[in-house]
Design a protein around this nucleic acid. Structure first.
Lengths: 151, 151
DNA sequence: TATTGTTATACTCTATAACTATA
DNA sequence: TATAGTTATAGAGTATAACAATA
């Protein structure tokens, strides 16, 4: 509940800050993932942004329509497509970073450096635990064993 | 980014765990907010779940269609509606708690008690900072003043 | 056979604006 | 005048399933 509230607050405020630029917070995340790299396949983007493949594609189509990214044939794998920011996308991204900077600043100021590190560390471990979690609806006899704990 | 990943992981896994019961994670949150109270107005629910009023209404309509909640005239304010869980909603909520318990357990086990407390504390302060943040696009001369500190 | 991506489809969540009815 | 909620509308994100092309 607390995690949810923090994320929603950040997400909505980011959307509000970026709205004038015609880009959503999720699209901003996606574009940022492309910034460091020359080009990525959609498959790689799915991994990095932890999105669903079809969701990602829908977002790419929207960004492509705005001329912010482009998808070209992959040089070595003819199944894949090479996704990259256009020059317009790159300059838009710079603008988005400038616009969202004050909000990021406010978030950074809310915690000490030490607390921020601990927060990030805790969140990462939480994420790992969730990813490793598998529903015990169909138990793996071997690992769960004969304990008295009910699911 | 880290906050986003943690939230999305939790949200998706919760959805997966609850899918068989035909209820989404967001609906689960909403129903939980109703559990402690006999009844709440939609306005109060908006505050507690930090949802948009129209978003909330859409969710209530879905839950009402499933017979999990009901909306009755408010006794003292004839504009308002009194939202409450039905008995079916109440028993469904119990089932949802049971189903999601292992996931919550995994999340709790990922951190020490001390770390959990610190995490919650940090997230709350972050949320407060975001809520208090106002875009500096149109500065309020009075409060911003001539300091060198930005936002 | 497995992988990359597309097409088709549907539903939930989100949000804005204009509105009704009460307070 | 302000508040509680509705109606109408739209779009973004999410996800499943069936499919084509390629590895």
């Amino acid at each position: 509940m607390t995690l949810r509230k923090a994320y929603l607050a950040m997400h909505r405020r980011t959307n509000a800050v970026l709205a004038a630029a015609g880009v959503t917070a999720d699209q901003f995340v996606l574009m940022s993932a492309l910034y460091d790299e020359d080009a990525l396949t959609q498959r790689e983007l799915v991994k990095r942004t932890s999105s669903d493949a079809n969701t990602l594609r829908a977002m790419l189509v929207l960004l492509e329509r705005q001329g912010l990214i482009e998808r070209q044939p992959h040089p070595s794998d003819r199944r894949a497509r090479s996704v990259a920011l256009t020059s317009k996308g790159r300059s838009t991204l710079h603008k988005l970073w400038r616009r969202s900077e004050p909000l990021r600043g406010a978030m950074i100021d809310a915690l000490t450096l030490d607390e921020s590190m601990q927060l990030l560390n805790a969140l990462r471990r939480l994420t790992t635990a969730i990813h490793e979690f598998r529903s015990p609806s169909r138990r793996q006899r071997q690992s769960v064993g004969a304990d008295n704990q009910t699911s």
